[in-house]
Design a binder for these strands. Structure first.
Lengths: 97, 97
DNA sequence: CTATATTTGCCAAATAATGTCAAGACAAAA
DNA sequence: TTTTGTCTTGACATTATTTGGCAAATATAG
């Protein structure tokens, strides 16, 4: 998962222990560990907090977080790319509802 | 939702009552109604059964079904398109895990 | 070795999803 | 207007999935 890798990279860069991040998110270090390993998904508010902690662009981190969720949907699909295109093509059409 | 519209269209074309479709899917007509209205999501196996009932390409129907799920993820996101591109670009990278 | 950091498995609580039933809306036919 | 059949909706129960913590196991330093 891109998100997991990203936050690990950010944390490593700043040499912060998981404990510290977990505290900021008000969760157990074990839980944070799982998020960083991609076993658990962070909540949207947590993405926001993380972007502040790591002083990185919130939008960018959020996009990665969303990308992971999308990937989950198509990861085992042979025609994943085509599905993504289908959404892209119909995104306006979808909006009409 | 594209899927909901699609199956309604297919059903209308063949002039089959919801009752009949529901029976084939072994669910209540109320449940099928919700699926057709986009209030409930069909299960993957049900997509298969539907494609047989309506004699349409299973792959095509499945793609629409998947597209809806993806749309659900990004529907309220300002940068939806960018997220889709991000996945598209990284789909190979993702595969490495 | 000791201390700290990270990871894992397992369980309980919270949340989300799925389906049914019962009641209501609607239209066509009698 | 009453009847019939279809479709729709909401409340509710059931089930599945997600989430977080605890405790134990495993690294990683110092």
């Amino acid at each position: 998962m891109l998100f997991a890798e990203k936050i690990k990279q950010l944390r490593d860069f700043r040499q912060m222990p998981q404990r510290q991040i977990a505290a900021a998110l008000e969760i157990d270090t074990a839980t944070y560990c799982k998020i960083e390993k991609g076993d658990r998904r962070a909540k949207r508010e947590q993405v926001f907090i993380l972007s502040e902690l790591f002083e990185c662009k919130h939008d960018e981190l959020l996009k990665i977080w969303l990308a992971d969720q999308i990937y989950d949907v198509v990861k085992n699909e042979k025609e994943a790319s085509e599905v993504l295109n289908l959404v892209q093509e119909n995104i306006v059409e979808y909006g009409k509802r």
